[in-house]
Amino acid sequence: MLPNRAAVEGVAAQMQLAEVKGRSLWADARSRFFRNKAAVVSLVLLGLVAAFALFGGLFAQYENDFVDFSLIGSNAYLGVPSIETGHYFGTDSNGRDLFARTVQGTGISLMVGIVGALVAVIVGTLYGATAGYYGGRLDGLMMRIVDVLMSIPFMFVLILMLVIFGRSIFMLFLGIGLISWLDMARIARGQTLTIKNKEFVEVAVATGVHPLKIILRHIVPNLLGIVIVYATLLVPNMIIFESFISFLGLGVQEPATSLGALINEGSRTMQFGYYWQIAFPLFFFVVTIFAFFFVGDGLRDALDPKDR
């Protein structure tokens, strides 16, 4: 009955074919991503910034909280960036080594961004996918909770929290974690609504696959593309958010620091000619944010080839 059956068997028997490795959609996206020059350069830059934050401390000649009293008052000529003194990026207005402080600030800023994005990806995606998949009343309830949380002015609440409970890095993470997943939940829900009507989900339901497995196996992998893109674009937003809080003086507490806090300090002394106090933190801040945006753009183009 089947004309090509014999042929198929014959070919298989003759060639003893090894299993062919399939090209997944992820592999396709990867190759598209690596063809995007701006994105690849940005990825390398991000890697360098991360390496700076992780291993820069090994090269620092001073502790980040060591105050060199001999420099106070003579910052303009003794605290300039130089290799000889070991203050590669100069010193800040309190006579602390700016290199060590920038290393630490970059680390904290990256951490804030990545924690925010991780919370968004994990909580937001699962929350949105669950709401979208079950639909009906549960969906209505879950999304109204998101609406209510969104309608609260978070900057105000976060500032209140930092004032009442004291300024700490944990409070900052908590505040950022609380808001970052809201948008993601909405995006994930919207995507889920389209995916759950696809036939492969119906097959899974008809086969009797457990709803939780359907969400994890069929829905989440298919909305992950959009989620990843949004997450990379969320990281710089979170860094900017944290910088803004720190710029207001409410972020991380001394002697710890972040890029936003360093820029804030630098901006006060900029007018007296201590350009390095703002230039170095600002450089890492701008590079990180631009790199994240370019990587996000590259990922979007790679994961949604039809979108262009």
Binding site: G22, S24, E199, F200, E202, T207, R217, N222
Partner: peptide, 22 residues
Amino acid sequence: HRRDVQMIFQDPLAALNPRMTV
């Protein structure tokens, strides 16, 4: 019942999860 009744769909590609291997 779910074991004994199976379904084949109209759009062959839409019925297969694009992120899973055959």
